[in-house]
Design a binder for these strands. Structure first.
Length: 702
DNA sequence: TTAGGGTTAG
């Protein structure tokens, strides 16, 4: 007996492959090779310090297998991530029950359930759960495994049912349910459980709970709530926990608080690759692209090896700032580290190339990617639309479908947006049918995109049908339909919808809704209604008008010839007026031929936006009408001298599934002669009908 | 005798 105790003690202290082998042969020598306690211990040690195959061999050599031995081997497979093997072992154990009388215990089932969770095997998981209800009392370990199973399979109702069966759930069980909701895209409910746990049940959150809570706040972009979670972290003295600090970095990044993130990052005594990546991402996503790239390069200089996440974030910084040069450098780096063709990295690279107007590089990469998924396809077709090549998007989308890749909701939103750049009604109708057929019709984002698409195709009535057919209407849906009416000069209907929304629905207008309704008033010439709504915005909804709202108000007043009032509004703005505000005033001066105020607007515009040819043209036109040829010519010369170009308006027509695009005066089309012949005929007809000719309508071209 | 929940991305 004494020898056995000594061996057990030695096994407890064992920490290397060599000592296990020695101890194992010692056990064989003294005839303890079949002692179940010792065999189990040996098995655990073999899988920890040697390999699974050693553990498996010992398991097979043991004739009398106790439940502990089974559990030890199951755990070895499970911790290696071999979930399929774990489950097949579990089945084998159940088949052996009759002969060995060794029944699976709570520990066995926990491991089996977690393997099901890993493999998303809901059916098998449910079967085990059913078996459990009859045979084994629930304990907290089984409970958390069950919650994990149902959470991973998206069955939160079942997860919560399990949770409810425990009269006094412990911190781990609470955390499991918080995490479940957080990872199933329901951060509100996650935080509701969190606050219930902390406030009502007075259970102290531990680091894991706080990580999940922080992550839920990040999803909601809720800075204030996030700060209170940070308060918990500090109060409980978890500041030094690296994963918690990383969570907070992520939270501050998602809520756009560069300052808090930077402070935290600088104060962190230890940083790992997640900290660096989160900080780069924070800069990249919050308009600080230069900082993101500086930090990334600082890492490289310090020889800290970036991972896929870091590279993807740095690439995003290049994409947002159209920094092709830096993007190419990072591409080389990705090649050196060997993750150029990793699906997320190459998709980020493609996105960067597209946003830097280099589609040929994106295509090259796309063709070399060994695996493509819906995101890689979507980056390609939405990228084309973003750089003014929307006519290519639809073909890519169709290729994706024939490739057998189903679009997700985001991809559908992107293709609808691409199509609305073209404004072809027939295409819109096809896409609408596709949306219905694929079961996306009740998605709010897709509904709003469809409304916008139909509006861009000048089919406001179809937009209205989509709107009325939707089950849930959120603020985006409402804003889209109001914008649809507004942009077509149908101000009455836009106003009716706005009042229907604010008085008879439970959706509150936001700042974007006010952009829609104010510009609807502006286009329809509803000056008093516009001013009224502008005041309602602050008084009733506590929304501060931003510079865009002021721009629309200036446009509204200006169009109606109230130039003094418009100027007065600019002078009373709480923030400095941006270029579009002065631009609206200048446009109004062009309509109402007001040189003095026009010059004032131009004086404010030229220094801040010197490359915008349109502003020079507007002022020059004001001078022309006033017969001030001298100043008009001076402006023209300035434009030529600085080689400024107005962004050219493109027109597109779709004939037999092919899109033809034109710019003013181009002769590139193969049937150009016939097209101009037809234009001349139309021109004559227009003049006969008493309208201005097409040529006159084009006024000036630089 | 073994033990449960967690962080960054296209």
């Amino acid at each position: 007996m004494k020898r056995r105790d000594l061996l057990i003690k030695l096994l407890g202290a064992c920490c290397s492959k060599i000592s296990i082998t020695k101890l194992h042969s010692e056990c064989l020598k003294v005839g303890l090779a079949h002692d179940s306690f010792i065999v189990t211990k040996l098995n655990v040690l073999y899988s920890r310090y040697a390999s699974l195959s050693h553990a498996q061999k010992l398991f097979e050599e043991t004739p009398c297998k106790t439940v502990y031995l089974w559990n030890a081997l199951l755990r070895s497979y499970f911790s290696e991530g071999e979930w399929v093997e774990t489950l097949s072992l579990f089945r084998q154990m159940n088949a052996d029950v009759k002969s060995t009388k060794e029944r699976p215990d709570n520990y066995t089932v926990s491991i089996a359930l977690k393997s099901c969770a890993g493999l998303r095997k809901l059916g098998l998981g449910r079967t085990i759960h059913g078996f459990l209800k009859k045979k084994i009392d629930n304990d907290m370990f089984v409970g958390s495994a069950l919650i994990e199973l149902y959470s991973k399979c998206g069955q939160m109702n079942d997860a919560v049912k399990v949770f409810m069966e425990y009269p006094k759930p412990d911190v781990v069980l609470w955390t499991s349910i918080v995490t479940g909701y957080e990872q199933n895209g329901n951060p509100e409910v996650a935080l509701a459980f969190f606050s219930r746990m902390v406030v009502l049940e007075q259970i102290n959150p531990d680091p894991v709970t706080l990580v999940s809570a922080a992550s839920a706040c990040a999803q909601l972009s809720n800075f204030n709530l996030g700060r209170s979670v940070h308060g918990f972290v500090k109060r409980r003295g978890f500041d030094s926990k690296l994963c918690l600090a990383n969570s907070m970095l992520n939270l501050y990044g998602k809520t756009g608080s560069i300052k808090s993130a930077t402070n935290l990052f600088r104060e962190m005594p230890n940083k790992d690759i997640i900290s660096w990546s989160s900080m780069v991402a924070c800069y990249a996503d919050n308009g600080a692209e230069t900082n993101a790239l500086d930090l990334f390069n600082e890492m490289i200089d310090k020889q800290i090896e970036p991972n896929r996440f870091t590279v993807v974030s740095a690439l995003r910084a290049c994409a947002f700032s159209s920094n092709l040069e830096e993007g190419i450098q990072i591409h080389k780096l990705a090649v050196n580290y060997g993750f150029e063709l990793d699906i997320t990295v190459s998709t980020a690279l493609m996105d960067m190339y597209m946003k830097c107007f280099s589609p040929e590089n994106a295509i090259d990469l796309f063709n070399r990617m060994p695996k493509k998924d819906v995101v890689s396809w979507a980056v390609l077709f939405s990228g084309y639309a973003e750089i003014g090549m929307a006519h290519k998007s639809m073909r890519v989308f169709c290729n994706m479908l024939s490739n057998g890749t189903r679009p997700d909701a985001i991809a559908v939103v992107k293709i609808l947006a691409a199509s609305s750049e073209l404004g072809i009604l027939r295409q819109a109708v096809c896409l609408h049918a596709f949306v219905t057929k694929s079961g996306f019709e009740n998605n709010e984002f897709i509904g709003a995109s469809l409304i916008e698409l139909y509006a861009k195709c000048s089919s406001v009535d179809n937009a209205k049908k989509v709107f009325r057919g939707m089950i849930h209407r959120d603020v985006v849906t409402w804003s889209s339909i109001i914008a649809a009416y507004g942009s077509h000069g149908r101000g009455e209907e836009a106003l009716k919808l706005f009042y229907e929304m604010s008085n008879h629905s439970d959706v509150k207008p936001n700042d974007i809704t006010f952009v829609s309704i104010l510009s609807a008033c502006s286009h329809a010439g509803f000056i008093e209604e516009g001013i009224k709504i502008f005041h309602v915005m602050g008084n009733q909804y506590q929304l501060m008008p931003n510079s865009e709202h002021y721009g629309i108000m200036v446009d509204l007043l200006g169009r109606m010839g109230e130039l003094d009032k418009a100027l007065n509004m600019i002078n009373n703005m709480p923030m400095p007026p941006g270029p579009h505000v002065w631009g609206a005033l200048l446009g109004a001066c062009r309509i109402h031929q007001h040189m003095k105020i026009g010059e004032l607007a131009a004086q404010n515009l030229f220094p801040v936006d010197p490359n915008h040819a349109g502003y020079y043209i507007l002022l020059s036109n004001i001078y022309c009408v006033d017969k001030n040829w001298h100043d008009a010519a001076k402006l023209r010369a300035l434009v030529k001298e600085n080689r400024l170009k107005k962004i050219i308006g493109q027109s597109m027509v779709e004939i037999k599934n092919e899109v033809h695009s034109f710019v003013a005066g181009d002769r590139f089309h193969s049937e150009s002669d016939q097209i101009y012949e037809m234009l001349r005929k139309l021109d004559t007809k227009m003049r006969e009908g008493g309208y201005d000719s097409l040529v006159q309508a084009q006024e000036m071209h630089f």
